[in-house]
Simulated assay, not measured.
Amino acid sequence: MTTLVVGASGATGQHLVSQLLKQGQHVRAIVRNAEKLPVSLRNENRLTIIEASILDLTAAEMVEYVADCDAVASCLGHNLTFKGIYGQPRKLVTDATRRLCNAIIVNTPTKAVKYILMNTSGNRNRDLEEPISFTHKCVIGLLRLLLPPHVDNEKAADYLRTHIGQNNQFVKWCAVRPDGLIDEDEVTAYEIHPSPIRSAIFNAGKVSRINVAHFMAALIVDDDTWIKWKGQMPVIYNETSMIVKQAKYR
């Protein structure tokens, strides 16, 4: 099994690459700078590193890199700097998602390819009735005006929901919505819900990046996990428990 990971040099992307390699998977990683990957990953013989900026790739190169992949995982995000938030490309995640899905479709794979998008709990799943307060709606409205990355995350998930949909022959998808990302060194117990169980604005929870990566890897390699969550936008939180050897996802 081969997975293409974009945003592989990011904090969550590195964990995802590591999780997949630990499970015996082959990984293609698109990174702007290979030196940002840990040496331990760069030396893995099942990892193929493609050094490029994702949106600078031609359509033909996109088609080549997704060919023969069983899954594509996006851990792309905007750097938390003034340039990263307000500079170009403002639609990094959306444009990458659109172009990668188009490349998958051009290849007409015999088996549908999984597309796993790392998104945010601040984005509502408009396929479900996810109630939020009036104040919450006002804050989201301000975020749309003031923070282009939030709009990018919304549009990327909306592309999967409305353009790819539930019945595409070649692409099946899942948009993972983590709450309050934190850094941890070990996989811990975590829980998955179809919709937020707390306000992402006023009562945000926490989840470690390594737990997000673990769940994304489970979607790729575990059929039962995939069947349960495909075509959905699950929200992930850490459980308040000690480190465990086997993470719990339900």
Rank of each mutant, 00 (worst) to 15 (best):
N123M: 06
H214C: 15
K114I: 08
M216Y: 05
A156S: 13
M1N: 11
H214P: 01
S53P: 02
S9P: 12
S40K: 14
R126V: 15
I116H: 00
Y249H: 14
Y115V: 07
D152F: 00
K91M: 01
V244A: 08
C101K: 00
Y190W: 07
R144I: 06
E130T: 08
A157D: 03
Q19V: 07
F170T: 10
T81I: 09
D183R: 12
I220N: 09
H150P: 04
L100G: 04
N168H: 14
N167M: 10
P38S: 07
V39N: 12
A157N: 03
L37N: 02
I54Y: 02
I85V: 12
L145M: 14
Q25W: 05
M118Q: 11
A213H: 03
N168M: 05
M216F: 03
L181E: 09
I182H: 06
F134I: 01
T135K: 04
H15Y: 13
V113R: 00
S9N: 12
S241W: 06
G13L: 09
Q169G: 14
L76V: 07
R124F: 07
G84I: 07
V66P: 01
D224N: 13
M118V: 15
A59D: 14
G165E: 09
E186H: 13
R177G: 08
R144Y: 14
I30G: 03
R46S: 15
A8C: 12
T97L: 03
N153F: 08
H193W: 12
R250S: 15
S121T: 09
L57A: 07
G205N: 10
A218L: 12
G122M: 01
Y249C: 14
T120I: 00
E51Y: 05
P38Q: 03
V31F: 06
A103L: 10
V31P: 00
A59P: 05
I192R: 03
E61W: 09
A156C: 06
T110R: 07
Q14H: 10
E61P: 06
Q19H: 13
S199R: 03
N211A: 07
H136R: 01
E239D: 15
Q25F: 03
K22L: 14
G13R: 05
Q166D: 13
L160D: 06
Q166F: 06
F202Y: 11
G122W: 00
P149L: 05
F215L: 13
A112G: 01
M1S: 12
A247S: 13
T225S: 11
L219A: 07
E130R: 03
R126Y: 13
H163M: 11
A34L: 09
D70S: 13
K111G: 01
K91W: 11
I54T: 04
D127M: 09
I49K: 05
R250E: 14
Q25H: 08
H150G: 05
D158E: 14
M242I: 15
I210R: 05
G84C: 00
R28M: 05
C174M: 10
Q246F: 12
V113D: 00
K230W: 04
T240V: 15
T110N: 10
L80T: 11
A189I: 04
N153Q: 14
I104D: 01
M216C: 13
Q166C: 08
I164T: 02
T108W: 04
L146P: 00
A103Y: 01
D224C: 11
S74N: 02
Y115M: 02
N167E: 15
L55V: 12
I201H: 01
N45C: 09
A189C: 11
G77N: 04
P38L: 08
M233S: 14
D68R: 09
